[in-house]
Simulated scan of single mutants.
Amino acid sequence: MKAFSLLEGITDLKEVGVTELAIKTKTNKTTVYRLLSTFEKLGYLRKTENQKYFLTLKLFELGTKVLENISIVEIAKPILKKMSDITNETIHLAALDNDEVVYLDKFDSTHTLRMYSRIGRRVPTYCTALGKVFLAWGPESLIKRVAKDLRPYTKNTITDLSQLKEQLSKIRKEGYAIDNEEYEYGVKCIAAPIRNVNGEVVAAISISGPSVRLTAEKIQELKPIILDYSNKISSKIVF
């Protein structure tokens, strides 16, 4: 709570020193100095030559990212509903956050046997179709971080970096990714990217279901559907 109080205190001023902020927030000077130093290391604050602190644009960037995700959900929802009606399988909209996939929205299948998930759930990147979309079009630094822990979830999980990179190259060529029971036994998934006006991947959508229904033949039928609907969503994103 004190950390956020300090940030709010700085927001009201163009720049502020430790003593001034300690008085303003009624916080011990040692605590203020420690927290300000931490924020500076994280890039949220910078220090002037006269030892005063001011906010950088990093908080603005975080806020903008949140607004983008909210906008994507609003844009995608009616389109995902149509895709859900057509496929009657579980539909997800997801974003990348802290090197993990986060479900932003979903539509459940009406089948009794269906994939379990919830909005806000986090899943790994390297063994999910949604995650592999972000890896395929993400920076090399993301792949390097993820590669530090390629633990197996099933016997189909790719745990070799060279094999993963080979699959990511294929995903970039074909435009979609597949999870063949790599994260959960009995669950398959196909995913495609959502791009902004600059062509950057800002989200991804997927169709998931039990492997008994999502056979190899069914996956082939779903490919043009998910590519079509991912393009429809991308065409409506104007940021």
Rank of each mutant, 00 (worst) to 15 (best):
A192V: 02
N88E: 03
P124L: 03
I207N: 07
E100R: 08
K82L: 11
V238L: 10
S162E: 15
L150R: 00
K81C: 01
E182H: 04
E166P: 00
V202L: 06
E200N: 15
V73P: 05
A204P: 08
L227Y: 01
K148Q: 12
A147S: 15
N180Y: 14
I207M: 07
D228Y: 03
R145G: 07
V123R: 05
C189T: 05
Y53D: 07
L67G: 01
V32D: 07
K148E: 11
F60M: 11
K26R: 12
V73E: 01
K77W: 02
K173L: 13
G175P: 05
Y176R: 03
L113W: 13
L214H: 06
K155W: 00
S141Q: 12
G120N: 13
E40V: 11
F4A: 13
E184S: 06
I10L: 12
I143Y: 04
G175T: 07
P152N: 00
G199F: 06
Y44T: 02
K232L: 08
L80K: 02
G199H: 04
T31G: 01
D228I: 05
A136I: 06
Y116C: 07
Y116E: 11
G186E: 00
L36T: 11
L21T: 09
A204M: 07
T87D: 02
E140M: 07
L21D: 10
D12E: 15
T90P: 04
A216D: 15
T128W: 03
K82N: 11
E200H: 12
D12I: 14
R118D: 12
P78R: 10
K65I: 14
R118N: 13
N231Q: 09
T112Q: 05
W137Q: 02
P210V: 14
Q163N: 14
T128K: 04
T87K: 08
K41N: 07
K223G: 01
S141L: 10
A147W: 02
K82S: 08
D12P: 00
L164V: 06
D12K: 13
L135W: 04
I10W: 05
D108E: 14
A203G: 15
K81P: 03
V32Q: 04
S235R: 03
